[in-house]
């Protein structure tokens, strides 16, 4: 796996590896992906999504109580005025 490709994966994953780590990961991921590539032996086409083996009865449109505001933000690393806070974003 090329370094450029690893860097792209870092971007998608919002991770930043050190150059040393990057080399190690490239090796590991290469091995794993090579292993996973055996999957190409599969000749069938995926028949859509097969997880459901039971028909769903959907939820009725009824309102249930929400969490209290203070509980919603209780674990926030930064919060103010009942909101989660991050450094100001330029749009």
């Amino acid at each position: 796996m090329e370094i450029k490709e690893i860097q792209h994966l870092e971007e998608l994953s919002n991770l930043k590896l050190s150059s040393q780590q990057r080399e190690r990961f490239a090796q590991d991921l290469d091995n794993i992906i090579q292993f996973a590539s055996q999957i190409s032996k599969e000749t069938h086409q995926a028949q859509g999504f097969i997880q459901s083996i039971h028909l769903n009865e959907l939820r009725e449109d009824i309102v249930q109580p929400s969490l209290p505001q203070e509980k919603v933000v209780i674990n926030a690393p930064d919060q103010r005025k009942g909101c989660f806070a991050v450094p100001r974003i330029m749009e």
């Binding site: 994966l9 870092e10 994953s13 991770l15 990961f25 590991d28 992906i33």
Partner: peptide, 15 residues
């Protein structure tokens, strides 16, 4: 590291 590896692997196969 193990979590990072799998996240990157996951993003690879989905990309």
């Amino acid at each position: 590291d193990e979590v990072k590896r799998r996240i990157m692997l996951g993003n690879y196969v989905l990309s």
